[in-house]
């Protein structure tokens, strides 16, 4: 081969095994009583990153200016990286021989556990940025709490992801402020975006039996505990952005976490899963 000698690393499997062996012992991973809830919760973490990352990646090559195109791709790349970690751990906890890729590419919509917020179409940059900011502000609080998880594996992933998500929040909140307080048009677009996605934000804090079980086990915080922090960040940023917090209920739309999604998710999956579905068992 003239100029392409070492395209494939031969011993990736060994490397992966060694890395797995080096990971901290985690009693929760093998806890049978907790398995269903833990698996489901890990899918929620992974699916939020996967679907939001997918949406943001749709901008690649279509951004409003080169610098922003590049920045959005960085965010999407971070989120895809988080997906690999969360769904990787989910697959391990499930112990059914599925991989992170199997979970991403071979589950149907009703098995997806992401928030409805992250599957909403990109709309204009205003919707994309507002959606990201409202999620980032939640994501940041959640990951911060998860760094103290009773599960060392969860804490480890959270610590890695938090570094990146801190920057996501810094960037998205800054852009919300700037565009909110920019021109009349940018202000109007940001306000319209806020009004559009606001009703989907409450789902981030809506607790169900799964959340209770992982909170009980000390794996994750009670989501309601995060709400005041989120409200403070969002309140401050919106005020600086000269935007008005909508009066409508913030929890008007929920169900994504339980697998009842908007119509949009089906189309995302149809696109995302096409190759794995069309050529079952092929290796890529």
């Amino acid at each position: 081969m003239p100029s392409l000698p070492d395209v494939a690393t031969p011993d990736v499997v060994t490397l992966a095994e060694r890395a797995a062996a080096a990971q901290a012992q985690d009693p929760h991973v093998a806890d049978v009583a907790l398995k269903t809830a833990f698996f489901d919760w890990l899918c929620r973490m992974g699916d939020n990153s996967l679907i939001l990352g997918h949406r943001i990646s749709e901008w690649c090559g279509h951004g409003p200016v080169l610098e922003e195109d590049i920045a959005l791709a960085n965010t999407a790349l971070d989120l895809i990286g988080h997906t690999q970690m969360w769904l990787g751990l989910a697959a391990e906890v499930e112990g059914a021989g599925r991989s992170a890729d199997d979970l991403a590419f071979l589950r149907d919509a009703m098995k997806f556990r992401n928030l409805k917020l992250v599957e909403l179409p990109n709309g204009d940059m205003a919707v994309t940025l507002m959606r990201e900011f409202l999620f980032d502000a939640f994501h940041f609080e959640l990951l911060t709490a998860l760094t103290k998880s009773s599960s060392p594996r969860v804490a480890e992933i959270a610590a890695k992801a938090l570094k990146e998500v801190s920057y996501h929040l810094e960037r998205s909140s800054d852009l919300v402020v700037r565009l909110g307080d920019g021109t009349e048009e940018s202000h109007a677009r940001m306000q319209a975006a806020l009004n559009k996605v606001w009703g989907y934000t409450g789902e981030m804090f809506a607790e169900d039996a799964i959340d209770d079980a992982v909170a009980e086990a000390g794996i994750a915080p009670a989501l309601s505990d995060l709400l005041p922090f989120w409200q403070r960040t969002v309140g401050e940023v919106l005020e600086e952005a000269t935007l008005r917090q909508p009066e409508q209920r913030f929890d008007a739309h929920s169900g994504g976490k339980q697998g009842r999604h908007t119509e949009h998710l089906g189309y995302i999956l149809a696109e995302m899963q096409f190759l794995q579905r069309a050529y079952p068992g092929a290796s890529w």
Binding site: V65, E67, I70, A71, Y167
Partner: peptide, 18 residues
């Protein structure tokens, strides 16, 4: 390109420290 110095720093992080 960036509208001001703060954004220039953020853009630099995204463009030149990938």
């Amino acid at each position: 390109h960036a509208p001001d110095a703060e954004m220039a720093i953020k853009n630099a992080r995204d463009v030149y420290t990938r």
